[in-house]
């Protein structure tokens, strides 16, 4: 067990992610990062991959980070964090801070996957947080490995021959868990208390931890900014974004979906990135395929 004390953030108008950042209105990632820092407290050092979060929080000479922060490149957040962690150890400062590595879905599951795998495999005492907004939002909504099936992005457009993204969302939590790490969790900005609990739990465990937080992007998902929480909630309630914890390889806790089941249409129809599925009768078949993805998740994780 760790000897680092986790302190609660100061109760004031400012959170550990200071306002004045330039995230879009209703940004789920800004909210997720605020919640993660709030739960982690001030005795941390954070790294971040290139991406929206880094760009909207660190426009020199300003920074929104109230905790020590380092950004290096797109694909090396996990490796930089590993460097921070071993340096603290080598300098005898390991009780000074917990290390949290961050990245978006592209920086985590695509270009940063190798560095993340290395970090997880080597057993560093680091919590890796992936803010999953399901595409390369910073560069203009291009498809990533975590973009869901049939989702329209600027590089997986719908057209005569296309329903959008042809591939299923990469099962990143399982990949992380396959490293035999002590803790893997998914979460959603719709459930802030759950994020807080999971961050605190993760930081109480020594070793590598992986957390993936569903973070709606109003711009990329073409949803209304005020609906960010509603959209996130529906993803969980339909079973499309299963919320669970995997401890030492076993699923130990899940968030149940609604009874009766919420059909995936409820989630899809409030987002422009799925609007093409509602424009023709053939789209119904595609929606059925998405329903099957949700049903498989519900069965796999026992969400019903």
């Amino acid at each position: 067990m760790s000897t680092t004390t986790l302190t609660a953030p100061k109760e004031q108008s400012c959170t550990l992610l200071a306002p004045g950042h330039t995230a879009c209105t209703g940004c789920g990632e800004a909210l997720a990062a605020k919640l993660v820092l709030g739960a982690a407290g001030t005795n941390i050092i954070v790294t971040d991959a290139t991406g929206c979060l880094e760009v909207f929080t660190t426009k020199f000479p300003q920074s929104s980070w109230e905790v020590p922060f380092i950004h290096s490149l797109f694909e090396n957040s996990a490796a930089v964090a590993a460097g921070v962690e071993v340096a603290l150890k080598a300098l005898g400062r390991q009780n000074e801070a917990k290390v949290i590595a961050q990245g978006g879905d592209g920086g985590t599951a695509d270009i940063g996957l190798q560095a993340l795998s290395g970090m997880l495999e080597r057993g560093h005492d680091i919590l890796y947080v992936c803010y999953d907004n399901e595409a390369y939002m910073n560069t203009g909504v291009q498809r990533s490995g975590l973009t869901p099936f049939d989702c329209m992005t600027t590089t997986s457009p719908c057209g005569e021959l296309s329903w959008g993204n042809k591939h299923n969302k990469k099962d990143m939590p399982s990949i992380a868990a396959a490293h035999g790490i002590p803790y893997v969790a998914t979460a959603s900005v719709a459930f802030p208390k759950d994020i807080e609990n999971k961050v605190k739990k993760a930081l109480s465990i020594t070793g590598p931890k992986y957390m993936q937080i569903h973070s709606p992007c109003p711009l990329g998902w073409r949803s209304k900014p005020q609906l960010t929480i509603q959209v996130a909630k529906l993803a969980v309630q339909t079973g499309l974004y299963p919320i669970f914890e995997i401890e030492n390889g076993k699923v130990t806790k899940v968030r149940k979906v609604t009874t009766p089941k919420t059909p995936v249409e409820e989630y899809l129809k409030i987002q422009g990135r799925f609007a093409h599925l509602f424009k023709s009768p053939k789209g119904k078949e595609e929606i059925q395929k998405i329903q099957e993805i949700a049903d498989r998740n519900i069965e796999k994780y026992g969400l019903a």
Binding site: T42, E54, V55, T58, K59, F60, P61, S63, W65, E66, V67, P68, F69, I70, H71, S72
Partner: peptide, 8 residues
Amino acid sequence: NPLTFGAM
């Protein structure tokens, strides 16, 4: 001294 390294 919580500084930000690698700002844009």
